[in-house]
Design a protein around this nucleic acid. Structure first.
Lengths: 342, 342
DNA sequence: CAGATTTTGAGGTACGTAAATCAGAAATTG
DNA sequence: CAATTTCTGATTTACGTACCTCAAAATCTG
């Protein structure tokens, strides 16, 4: 049988109350006694039964997720995962609230963050927008004692406790690697579409992509970035125009959202002549079909389910002052071809 | 506040004892009363607090993992993950025992399985070897009421309850896809190394690889499979010989273990002329370095940590008669390039 | 060394569920 | 309708931890 608090008490020759004081960092224990108890804990290998502890505490963790309300599939997937986490709430002793804010709107986001100050939750997960007012709002929450993690989109240099998302420079490099290798020694130009160059993630992806592609095949010509605001229709217009201007385009990399527009543009192309190599981000029902239909060659993905669950784990751990196992919380960059669609 | 058993009792107008009888499928409840209680459960949205339930039951799940004792890095990684699960045991109410058996030895494996019959654990996870005696031994365990999941290597057609591993045909197809695309329109021959064609997984990978590579580039010539018994030295010898015989070889696919031998053979090659395209399985410290050193182009991976944790979840769930969420337990085929090493 | 203060002990209740006992009510049987 | 069987209620204990109170002991102060 695994040791309990009673065993600690016996091993240390103290009472249960003292053990409890030590375990829960309550005052009123001499340093010497504390050491004796801690020694006993180590000796008999006691591990607190979190289930029982949570039961006794009937602790719940009020958490808030703030995400942009754009209608792109990735955010829809993220929203879905948050909803599922809300369903699981009673089992995980969390109480999760989801707040939607307009996309790319730093002001609205900062206001949403500040609205939490009145009744601050234990933790907040937020899809960050890179702006001073957001920095400041996060700082205010942190000062209140609220744990803040950025989700999907980071805010380096801010007071956030953790980032639950991928390394976007590495993601860009991975895309560049695939593009370079898939195109082999071919020459020609490569089109790149982003949501907005004002978003840190998108800048990072572009940086990584350009660097890596240039390493592998310097003869490829990376065209100036097209900005879509993550709007499928804009993606469609921009890509169609580009393809019309240069039908011999060798590759397309969409590092932002709006893949539906990309797919639409490619579908039209298909019948006429061979299509360019296409790499995009985020596995959704649309990109999944496009992969299977040979309209897209590779999809880079970050699993929103992992991100949400990781964010929750980290928020709870940091709230309890428990260390986070970084390796476990690292979000991977998944590569999907039509053959390994999970 | 979330509803408790007391709330069910009140809502259904019955006593706590009756609710308990219904919840835990104990006899002595009229169908009509049972229905009333179940209706109330649904109506008020009761979800059993598993933490409290386990606490009350003080249930522990005795589990056994049986794995081959080969010294290749993948199995070492698997062993490591099992050890970590053993460390976590007290927290997860499991009691895990690890049994090592000689690799590729059906007789020894069957004996190990049969040895459990005396004091059968709740669940067994086993890296299967495809042989009639293993089928039979698994059947006997199942009849005893023990849950059996195959790990890494499946035994289709046997009585196992679940398989915690990847779809190896899809893994082979993914490798074929990458090889075909990375080689572009090039012609030449592709060498394939396997551990043993007697192992189902390896046969599956070869099937998928050949199919897919042939679809993409039929001019590539897939050479007859080399069998290494997953021994690094054998891999080194076989590959070196093959490379000496045909220095113009376009690609190498190692679908088995023994990557250390492959890497050694490639290191020698490096200085002389360009090396072939290389794809292998399982991310280990060796293959990781080889990726970073540009000795290997892509690694397909199955995460042993995921497999072990999934196996434990499934064993516990099946032991409790709780349904398993298949989507959650699907083990992905990860693709790693040097750029997305997690 | 008296008095104040800090430290420790003993014991209880609570969390939500499981599991048991025993008595009483209802339904079924002959 | 009495005897039996089946079903249901009321109550209790237990799981391991948290947290509270009150009293007793030890230590520190001047």
């Amino acid at each position: 049988m695994r040791p309990t608090v009673h065993d600690i008490a016996e091993a240390a020759g103290v009472s249960l109350a003292t053990v409890d004081r030590v375990l829960n960092r309550r005052p009123g224990v001499r340093a010497e006694t504390r050491a004796r108890v801690e020694d006993a804990i180590g000796r008999i290998g006691f591990v607190r039964d979190m289930a029982a502890a949570n039961l006794a505490k009937s602790r719940i963790y009020p958490l808030v997720f703030i995400i942009p309300n754009g209608d792109n599939s990735f955010m829809a997937g993220l929203r879905q995962e948050i909803e599922e986490a809300i369903q699981r709430s009673p089992l995980e002793r969390t109480e999760i609230q989801r707040i939607d804010v307009p996309a790319f709107d730093a002001r609205a986001l900062a206001e949403a963050l500040d609205s939490l100050l009145a009744d601050p939750p234990v933790g907040v997960a937020v899809v960050a927008v890179d702006a001073p007012e957001v920095h400041a709002a996060i700082g205010r929450l942190r000062e209140q004692g609220t744990v803040v993690v950025t989700l999907v989109s980071d805010l380096p240099g801010s007071a956030r406790d953790h980032f639950a998302g991928v390394d976007n420079i590495a993601a860009g490099r991975t895309a560049g690697s695939l593009m370079g290798r898939f195109l082999g020694g071919r020459t020609g130009s490569v089109a790149v579409i982003a949501g907005s160059m004002l978003v840190g993630d998108h800048r990072d992806r572009l940086t990584g992509f350009s660097e890596r592609l240039n390493e592998i095949n310097p003869t490829l010509d990376i065209l100036p970035v097209l900005e879509s605001q993550d709007d499928p229709d804009a993606v469609y217009r921009l890509i169609s125009k580009r393809l019309a201007a240069d039908p011999e385009i060798a590759g397309i990399y969409n590092l932002g959202a709006g893949n539906r527009g990309l797919i639409r543009a490619l579908t039209g192309l298909r019948e006429s002549h061979g299509r360019p190599m296409v790499i995009a981000h985020e596995l959704t029902q649309h990109t999944r079909h496009a992969l299977l239909d040979d309209l897209i060659d590779a999809i880079l993905n970050q699993d929103p389910g992992h991100e949400v669950r990781s964010a929750i784990r980290v928020l709870k751990a940091k709230a309890d002052g428990v260390p986070v196992i970084d390796a476990q919380e690292r979000i991977r960059i998944d590569i999907f071809l039509k053959d390994n669609l999970s």
